[in-house]
Design a protein around this nucleic acid. Sequence first.
RNA 1: UGGGGUGUCGCCAAGUGGUAAGGCACAAGGUUUUGAUCCUUGCAUGCGUUGGUUCGAAUCCAGCCACCCCAGCCA
Length: 577
Amino acid sequence: MADSEKDSQSSSVAPSNFIRNKIAEDLASNKHGGLVQTRFPPEPNGYLHIGHAKSICLNFSVAAQNNGSCNLRFDDTNPAKESQEFIDEIKNNIKWLGFDWSGKVRYSSSYFEHLYNFATQLIENNLAYVCSLSPDQAREYRGSLTAPGTNSPDRDRSQAENIELFRRMRAGEFKDGSFSLRAKIDMASRNINMRDPVLYRIRHINHHQTGDKWCIYPTYDYTHCISDAIENVTHSFCTLEFEDHRPLYDWILQNLAIESLEKVSDLAGSIDNYVLPEQTEFAKLKLNYTMIGKRNLKEMIDTGVVEAWDDPRMPTLAGMRRRGFTAASIRNFCESVGVSRSESVVDMGMLEHSIRDDLDKTAPRVMCVLNPLKLTLENVDADFVETLSLQNHPKQESMGRREVPFTREVFIDRQDFEEEPPTGFKRLVLNGEVRLRGSYVIKCIEVIKDSAGEVIELVGSIDKDTLGKRPEGRKVKGVIHWVSASASIPITVRLYDRLFNVENPESKDIDDYRQCLNPNSLLTLENCRVEPSVIENGSSSFFQFEREGYFCMDEKDSRNNKMVFNRTITLRDSWSS
RNA sequence: UGGGGUGUCGCCAAGUGGUAAGGCACAAGGUUUUGAUCCUUGCAUGCGUUGGUUCGAAUCCAGCCACCCCAGCCA
């Protein structure tokens, strides 16, 4: 077999998924004139979370990989729940994640006038009517999953009357809920979304973008498809629960005169490429051991389970950022999770792998003792200070070196000393030797205890011939981290762990998520000691505290006299104590 | 019991009629002044299930089962 084309595949090929395949097909068939335009359309009614990150990465990267572009559009059709604060936060999050939207920020609300005109067009074509049924009545008329609905008594209202009533709705002549504009489709449809869905409702409230200009607001179903069309979106991605809405999405666009759509679109004037957008659904991201429902997150804040939207235990982008997740790690995670239509629950371990993988390559190493235990080295002079030069990264010399002071008194971690060590223990024991990382091999020669029998101090000695050298005639397998007692800096360290101790805290089997909270999701240590280079080397706020994990400085709570570090994630631990 | 979806290793996930990619996790070795990293190896005769078509089926057909979504003037 002549096999001339071995494997020409590059190592970083994006994995195939149904969306990339579809776009490739569309491009091949020239369906959208070679164009790929996507959009990320959040409603500004809360903070973005890891689930949104999946959608952001999808929309932006699919566009970028196909020479297309991606808009940011705030889907702000329900002002009751929305605010400018959320808009600002969402913009920040997207930029932080490393994406840039095309052109200016879009708002569905900026299309309100067009939307109103299109609604008038539907009325004129006998495809929409003003309905006087109350919300309760409308529900009764809608029928059920198994029974067809009943036509509204207003369904055959005259076109002229509909136009006039709709105008008066806009003029503010009616109370909230008294009238609605509905599409005239089919009250017997087996798809409930097609049973004369509401297009407009009356709401006498202020809108964060349009102020008091409007008192009627279009619904999501009516707005989204038209907004996509106006922005000349080619591929409109949304989550699976909107699958049943796709027929309505298409119905609305197909029942509007295409020239009128084109005329107000971004492509107005260059009719060649004007195409109707197409909706494609994918499965939401679910992560075990976490809740991402907006309502639940808000409740956790309101009840004090966590401190705020940016609490480092929250799955919000703001929280993850503060916890120490990097944008790259989140992007890589979203890529590794893939995009499909099957509803699946991703293991936390994948997220943890993404952040470890990124930080292992980029975080400078430093030593920090979390639970200090004093060790006095009796054969070192009291005023002796040796400045050791240590590599900031074991593999990347380009990351430079730092100076670490070594003195007679040092702190080691309480957990690195055992009087009665378990088998396999490689750390310090009485009369045992261990290497102080980057420094000398030391031996413990005395254990000092308090009246309660607790170990409060150790005395030892160094082997002066072991700096940068192996000890003569014996092997010392243990290496522990340490800091100088006098030259180290006191800091506060917050150890974070998963918030829940069950895989699915949002499960229907759990009536109160508070029953499955992990009581140890936050442990604050006030007396930690870090080597002085962390403040001298102000270039990074991410560090690996050797043998402990990855940590980042908390900018919100750190003070000049006391820095606070958050543990992002532990190191993998195949010993596990 | 209406309609729309989904079922491939413990968890994600490729695969679209030619004999089951990859990642995470896990396990066993090796390197190591981080019990980290890195390297090597192992990990589905099997693709929800039962039948059928075919030389050949995870892929096509039929039935069955399980799970998810839909009855907001929320998105």
